[in-house]
Design a binder for these strands. Structure first.
Lengths: 206, 206
DNA sequence: CGGCGATGGCTAACTCGATTAGCTTTCCGG
DNA sequence: CCGGAAAGCTAATCGAGTTAGCCATCGCCG
């Protein structure tokens, strides 16, 4: 019998694609093996465990996600950049539901290696960049990035979970969300006590 | 040997408490049985399956969550109500991480029975109520509720996943999030084309 | 061209969690 | 006090993950 010609990258890529179809949590070694035309134990020649497979899918997805949002945001800042970023964010999440789950899940203990942290920070940095141009000094730069992150992530998660009852309106609600965030960041009252703590700014720790 | 004296409600309550300790997804029949001083198969005298157990925990948690947020929001509207609601929301999520996961997870196929839908709608209704007082007509009432829901859910999820690097600042960021949402809802531009579609308002379909 | 070591795939077998079957014991109403 | 329903238990099955160990294939080197 001819060999399947697998290697770790192929297995992880196929796992990511399969996760998009059946859901990241439903991804199984047996299912992936079947998809690759191979018996389950054979996969262990390429990945150490299902945990390692998930980790690999997560990292691959994070790189792809970072590239997708970086592409539209590069060199831009302010409301237009936030809109473009938010659109790319949701578009990617909707196009890759399984990968998106993998990106945002709570990493299992020890799962968060150096590369994971680095990629997280790169995405946060892109958020800081698109938010430049709003008058956010000091700690509020961190806060604003968290606002953007939480809101977009929450929307994507609820949408992916089928939590919105009326599918027709979801695009419009997303636009409203972005409009609200932008208007909010332009009008949020500045607490003078907070503004004094500018020194605490830590751009890579979002 | 004396009987343990279990019944479905006890088992579900213990399961919810255990989920808060070990995480909803790590909850196992064996673990719960051990906690209750009973052998694993004995649990099946009280719950049909682990899926049914999860469903029971979810419904119990949704009721408790609804009560917690309803209590602080009753009869109030506008920014103060949004603040109180958001505080109760996050407080509950932080205090009951396993239950919170169960409330917001994507329900498995068929899992979403009538009571689940009813409880979802009740929480959405509370959101509509606290958002009354902002000048949101027509479809934007739905949009605003989705904004609030997405943002609070996203923040709670990222926080629960340990996604924020600087734990000290999380309270402040949450306040900033709420301030931003409130300022945003007070200043978001109204699109005249949207405002015309007021008839489409469906308050229970969030 | 032949050989050979590394590699990739396979079968068999084990573990663990969920679940079922069927037995036994306890409890409670009559 | 008695009989059956209810609640626990042991034994056993099933599926997913994983390991061990066997064998075929590939690619490279003499």
């Amino acid at each position: 019998m001819p060999r399947a010609g697998l290697d770790p990258a192929t297995v992880i890529e196929a796992g990511a694609a399969l996760a998009d179809e059946v859901g990241f949590e439903k991804l199984t070694m047996g299912l992936l093996a079947e998809r690759l035309g191979v018996r389950t134990p054979s996969l262990y020649k390429h990945v150490d465990s299902i945990e390692a497979l998930r980790r690999g899918i997560t990292l691959q997805a994070m790189r792809d996600f970072r590239d997708a949002v970086a592409r539209v945001a590069v060199g831009r800042a302010g409301p237009g950049a936030v809109r473009a970023f938010a659109d790319a964010y949701r578009r990617w999440a909707v196009a890759h539901p399984g990968r998106y789950s993998s990106v945002v899940r709570a990493p299992d203990a020890g799962d968060e290696d150096e590369e994971h942290r680095r990629l997280s920070n790169e995405v946060m940095q892109i958020m800081y960049d698109v938010l430049a141009g709003f008058e956010l000094r000091g700690t509020h730069a961190v806060d604003a990035a968290r606002v953007l992150r939480s809101s977009l992530h929450g929307f994507a998660t609820v949408e992916a979970a089928g939590g919105f009852g009326l599918p027709r309106d979801v695009d419009r609600s997303y636009r409203f969300l972005i409009d609200t965030i932008i208007a909010g960041l332009q009008n949020v009252p500045v607490d003078p006590a907070e503004d004094a703590s500018s020194r605490e700014f830590h751009p890579t720790s979002g």
